[in-house]
Amino acid sequence: MINLKLDNETFELRNEANEIDLHELNKIVTIMSFPDLVLTEKFEAIFKVLGLPDNDMDANAMVDLIKNFNVFKAKNIQLQNEIEMKGYNYVAFEGKEFKLKAKELICLEKEIQKNRIKLAQGKETSNLVSYILALIFKREDLTNNEHYENLHLELKAKLFEDYVKADFAIPYINLISQNIFDLV
């Protein structure tokens, strides 16, 4: 948490990945991909998502706030490769190293392309981070055919939104994109 003084009132801004849920992370990723916003405008929008009220913060204070914003600086790079949700076990990878398959990279390419088009048309984009987690984590009792079904991926993406925080997703996102802002 960062304590901010706004109009003589102290305000707490969530600042760590474990304080942000997946819905918010999805929104943040989308904001970072808006082509028409400059960086400070993007961060203003992000801080609004995190509950910061409208204010007349001066430029220096805004720069400091951006510098101290920790959400994308994932301290824990340890990937959690298993999770249990609604009684089912989901596994991201077997062995030591996390790797994506060609078909998963293609699914990702398609989702990113779809989002670019939606963004250009001013439509609401899909929840990319949730989709990535859904793609990576496979339910152990299902086959590959079922795993890549769109409906299954959609439902799983929603499950992740209920079960995990941003700190669970960010190490994967960073590994895939090297930079979360390159995603969309």
Binding site: K99, K101, A102, K103, L105, I106
Partner: peptide, 21 residues
Amino acid sequence: LELFLEKISIITDNDYFDLYE
């Protein structure tokens, strides 16, 4: 990527979609 792999699949008669990065 899909286009590339489809092309290679045609000429080699193999499936490359399950390959790791």
